[in-house]
């Protein structure tokens, strides 16, 4: 049984423990992707690396943005910017459920006192042309993670299959730390000379971005940038595989995928601004999916994507 002093005491401690745990299980601990994304899945370390035949094991924190979820920092649970912890292992190991439960223990959830459940939840990302089967994991009725076996990404069958774990860090941390309002959660150690709460770090930005996302973002510019990103993605992929300067085969899957990520985020902003109608919505999602598919097609022809000439 876990002793009380084993409990983490701050948001960052939970992140540090997850990093240590997954590092100890052999994952490469990566850093967040340096672009605005809606979820940890968009990181190329997940989306692209889930494709092809090469083995892979990575864990990382990914700041994620969901403009429509902004509540000016006032809602106890909802944020337009939050953190996800993401683990992707390919091929999915047979003991992935046990490994996952170990990570919960690592962050201070006592398996002898809590009720952990795997409840059916199939995952689908229409923007990435991806789907998988799995569960949402419940701890005493609270959803603490998504657990998915990827079946398809960018329209390609995943062979081998990757196992993906996604933890919503704020929610999980609030649960473990026993905090009711996200802004009240200790960010650093409660004994630090300068104690900072989650609110000290993020209340200001939540309010600013909420106003920006809902009312101020220039829709004309966003529409234009969406078109640009879409065109640029296709332009990058239209180059011949052989680089005329070096004479090497260099397919630019990642730079093209950056543009796909951009288009996706721009779409999310436009959606938050309420300027996309129900029928247009499907069309925009379809356009981003088309880009994701082309990037996936390109990636599986690279060496990292397992291509063998």
């Amino acid at each position: 049984m876990a002793a009380p002093q084993d409990k983490p005491r701050s948001f960052q401690e939970i992140i540090l423990r997850l990093q240590n745990y997954w590092a100890s299980k052999g994952c490469a601990v990566l850093q967040p992707y340096d672009m605005e994304v809606g979820a940890g899945t968009f990181h190329p370390a997940t989306t692209l690396r889930a494709l092809g035949s090469k083995s892979w094991a990575a864990a990382y924190v990914q700041p994620s943005r969901r403009p429509t979820d902004g509540r000016y920092g006032e809602n106890p649970n909802r944020l337009q910017h939050y953190y996800q912890y993401q683990v992707l292992i390919k091929p999915s190991p047979p003991d992935l459920q046990a490994l996952y439960l170990g990570s919960l223990e690592a962050i201070g959830i006592d398996m002898d006192l809590h009720d952990i459940r795997f409840v059916e939840d199939d995952w689908e990302s229409p923007t990435l042309g991806a789907w998988g089967l799995g569960w949402e994991v419940w701890c005493d009725g609270m959803e603490v993670s998504q657990f998915t076996y990827f079946q398809q990404v960018g329209g390609h069958d995943c062979k081998p299959v990757s196992g993906e774990l996604t933890y919503g860090l704020e929610r999980l941390a609030m649960y473990v730390l026993g905090v009711d309002h996200v802004m009240d959660m200790p960010y650093n150690s409660p004994e630090a000379p300068i104690q900072l709460s989650y609110g000290d770090v993020f209340r200001q930005t939540e309010a600013e971005y909420s106003r920006h996302n809902f009312d101020a973002a220039s829709t004309e510019m966003l529409f234009r940038h969406f078109e640009d990103a879409e065109a640029e993605c296709e332009e990058i992929l239209s180059h011949p595989a052989e680089d005329p300067k070096t004479g090497k085969t260099i397919i630019m899957a990642h730079p093209a995928y950056d543009q796909c990520i951009k288009a996706s985020h721009l779409f999310n902003l436009l959606d938050a601004r309420g300027v996309i109608s129900v029928t247009e919505r499907q069309a925009y999602i379809g356009r981003v999916r088309a880009l994701a598919k082309k990037c996936a097609d390109a990636f599986v022809q690279t060496e990292a994507g397992g291509w063998q000439a």
Binding site: P76, N77, D112, L113, H114, D115, R117, G141, M142, Y175
Partner: peptide, 23 residues
């Protein structure tokens, strides 16, 4: 309905569920 017995007769589980319900 929990999936297990616990040493505290489900007190932690019930408190957790109650909290989720509250939200």
């Amino acid at each position: 309905v929990a999936n297990r017995e616990t040493a505290d007769n489900g007190a932690t589980i019930l408190a957790g569920n109650q909290k989720v319900l509250f939200a």
